[in-house]
Design a protein around this nucleic acid. Structure first.
Lengths: 222, 222
DNA sequence: ATTACTATAACTCGAGTAC
DNA sequence: TGTACTCGAGTTATAGTAA
């Protein structure tokens, strides 16, 4: 199997864009060079290289040449095409946040032990939350990803009032950690640091996943 | 607009395949080099080059680094993806963005009242823009659709310079709202929130369509 | 373990040019 | 017009290292 370098691949793609997969195209080395931003000489060399690698075939005419992408040339292009398909197909709604486990202030435990919230999360997320939250300090890049996630659809967990006080609403979004269903919870009122997220789940994630302080975790959303 | 060479592009594609568009990926220069068939040193240089071109961002950890494909990196990949789609005749669908009207900061009004831009848009879109833009907050699904649209053919409106300052370039693409010809305009330099689009048209869309704050709108492209 | 610098060897580019 | 050769300048890769 012949293999070609990235520059030759870009050249092959250009030829295909000009119709080289469908039939022979008249293509001068000067024209090709102009389109790729390289010299006529370099374009000529590229064509020789692609021909040697059996990615294209050429027929010389006194007035110029005709170029055709061969079967293996097309196969090469289709393999690259499928790489892009992989990059973008699944991707659309999926986000991954990475960070490390840190200890919270224990507020999460308090709220998650309140029956109202337990019922609501059961209804909205499909699990009764373990009374406690896993706090994750996001890596700086994940903070950016986290911000983009504000444009996703979050579920609102309504607040309520008992005889003593008001309990605020919260937003949550379903996610998984190592395929365990979880949810990111953002309290409505308190001002959360933007580089920390709180995770709830039906089990105690620290034990289930063997997590300790500073363990690396990946949270998959969507 | 930054541009990158074919080798760097191959490197960017590899990072995306490893999940770099979804979230930060831990990636050593050695591993990357192995996957691309190049040396560790060269992989290191490629990452530096991509970082400089703002196609990726990196965070260093003592144990290694995390790499993330930036928005313009993803846009680059989507443009290449669309080239392959053209080669293999994946038919261009129609795109529909839905969202609600929000008020902008009035910047649009300023730019659309500048004769240079008015002339350019007249030439490129077929109407002289009303001095003002309609800002639409996209619903979450439409944000995803909007991203895919990066692979469509956008018209570039060149920037210019007067005696006082530089005016940046912009991209636009024709569309319709309730069959009224419009265009989505994206300023070249400023970093736009990804869930908001700006629409220009020959008429004042708010009045013509009876739109108010939070009115639902559908934008049809293609 | 990492990343990335420096030095040098190896390539690649395009000007000039032949056909 | 074409394509493609040679050759010097410039660029890029890797080995050897440092941090």
């Amino acid at each position: 199997m012949h293999t070609i370098d990235a520059e030759d691949a870009a050249c092959l793609r250009r030829i295909a864009l000009l119709g080289g997969c469908k039939g022979p195209v008249r293509l001068s080395t000067q024209t090709l060079g102009d389109q790729l931003g390289i010299s006529q000489q370099t374009a000529s060399r590229r064509l020789q290289s692609l021909e040697k690698a059996q990615m294209i075939s050429r027929t010389a005419e006194p007035t110029g040449q005709f170029v055709l992408v061969t079967r293996s040339g097309e196969e090469h292009l289709r393999r690259e095409f499928s790489e892009y398909s992989k990059i973008f197909d699944v991707k659309d709604e999926q986000y991954i946040l990475t960070g490390t486990v840190i200890s919270g202030v224990g507020e999460g435990r308090y709220y998650m032990s309140i029956p109202h919230y337990q019922e609501q999360f059961q209804k909205l997320c499909g699990f009764t939350p373990y009374p406690g939250t896993l706090n994750i300090k996001l890596n700086p890049q994940s903070v950016q990803i986290r911000k983009r996630m504000d444009s996703l659809e979050w579920t609102t967990v309504p607040g309520f009032k008992d005889e003593h006080r008001m309990f605020g609403e919260a937003r949550c979004i379903r996610c998984t950690i190592s395929d365990i269903p979880c949810a990111i919870v953002v309290p409505g009122r308190t001002h959360h640091p933007e580089d920390v997220i709180e995770i709830i789940s039906g089990t105690q994630l620290r034990d289930t996943l063997g997590l300790q302080e500073n363990s690396d975790v990946s949270v998959v959303i969507g």
